[in-house]
Structure formats: structure tokens, C-alpha cells
């Protein structure tokens, strides 16, 4: 389903194409889904679960912030490289879906990521000095940048983007000096292939 939506675009993709590609009968499709919209939403749910599990596990693999955030950021980039179609689908194509629900879910995934960044607040002595919207702002930078580059068909070197994004995420919490260290911080050893 994702392949068809990504190749043809959300609006142009038809249930007939999806059924044909998946090698199932139309009756089978109708039994499982109420329509294209429903199918997209259910598929989206499944990918979000997988994405959040992967990124969340990487985050938990490191004891302290921002090292755990860095691990999560690389896991996020790796997930996207392994699943380019899923990323395109989740970041861009769902914007063109008719139902509001998928866009709400897209926002919620961003919020999941924002929470990982917001954990930095606990590392700060004077947390009132950190703007409330610092976490949302950093997440937004990443998602918006990604969406635009992808939509314009540009190449995105996701792994190379990580240190820059870490700088943006860490700076409001720990200041310029420590944020700058993120620009040269080594990439954690890639996780074992699952």
C-alpha cells in the first residue's frame, strides 16, 4: 500500500492498484478496510508503532541526556534510511490525505520526539531560563526541513544532519558550548540489525 501511495501520490493512488500490488482480492481488502483512507490510517498506525519502538529503544540504551538523545537521533536517521518509502509516506504523503486523523497522528509522533528532547530540562539547573517551546521548536526544525527537502525531491543526507539537529536541540538547555560539542560528537556504534 505504501509503495503505491509513494509512487503515485496519495490522491492518485487507487484501491485497485493497492489490491493488485498486494496480491489480494478486492473482497479481501473490503473485509479488512473501509476504504483507502482507512487502509492508510491502519498502515500508518503500524509504522508509527515500529518507529517509536526503534527510536525509544535507542534512547533507553544510553544512561544520560544528551547521549541518549543522540542515540535516538541516529536511530531515527537509520530507520528512515532503511525505510525510505515509509518515511516519505509518514512525513509527506499523509499531509494530502483527506482525513484529519492522519495529520493528528503525524503531530503526535512529533510530540513523542519532542518529549525526548524536553527531557533535557532535567539536566538544567535553572529550568526557567529554558523557553517552554524549545522542544517543539527543535522537533519542528527537523520535521519541517525533512518534509520540504523530500517534497522538493532533494537528496537528504540524514546521518550528516544529525549533529546539526543535535546542536539545535541541545543549545536551549545546556548552552552554546555543550551544544557545539554535538557538532563533532562521534556517532554511536550502529545498533545490531534486527
Amino acid at each position: 500500500m505504501v509503495d503505491v501511495v509513494v509512487e503515485r501520490g496519495y490522491e492518485a493512488a487507487t484501491v485497485e492498484e493497492i489490491v493488485e500490488r498486494a496480491g489480494v482480492t478486492r473482497a479481501e481488502f473490503d473485509r479488512r478496510f473501509a476504504g483507502k483512507e482507512d487502509c492508510v490510517l491502519k498502515a500508518y498506525e503500524a509504522f508509527i508503532g515500529h518507529f517509536e519502538y526503534t527510536v525509544g529503544s535507542a534512547y533507553d540504551s544510553q544512561p544520560a541526556w544528551p547521549a541518549n538523545l543522540r542515540a535516538a537521533a541516529y536511530a531515527c536517521a537509520e530507520w528512515m534510511i532503511e525505510h525510505p518509502n515509509l518515511m516519505r509516506f509518514g512525513a509527506v504523503e499523509v499531509l494530502f490525505a483527506e482525513s484529519e486523523m492522519v495529520r493528528v497522528r503525524r503531530d503526535e509522533v512529533a510530540r513523542f520526539c519532542a518529549n525526548l528532547i524536553a527531557a533535557g530540562r532535567e539536566e538544567v539547573r535553572d529550568s526557567t531560563a529554558v523557553p517552554d517551546s524549545a522542544d517543539l521548536m527543535a522537533t519542528g526544525s527537523i520535521l519541517q526541513l525533512l518534509t520540504h527537502r523530500l517534497e522538493q525531491g532533494g537528496e537528504v543526507d540524514l546521518v550528516a544532519m544529525v549533529p546539526h539537529m543535535m546542536y539545535v536541540a541541545v543549545r536551549p538547555y545546556l548552552g552554546e558550548e555543550i551544544a557545539r560539542e554535538e557538532l563533532t560528537a562521534p556517532r554511536p556504534t550502529p545498533r545490531a540489525q534486527s
Binding site: M137, A138, T139, G140, S141, I142, M161, M165
Partner: peptide, 14 residues
């Protein structure tokens, strides 16, 4: 040098 792009994206999202 990615700072401005990231900032504008972040503001838009916010």
C-alpha cells in the same frame, strides 16, 4: 550554517 533553516522550520512548526 544550517542554523537559519532549522530556526525557520522550527518557528513554522511552532
Amino acid at each position: 550554517e544550517t542554523f537559519e533553516g532549522a530556526t525557520v522550520s522550527g518557528l513554522v512548526w511552532l
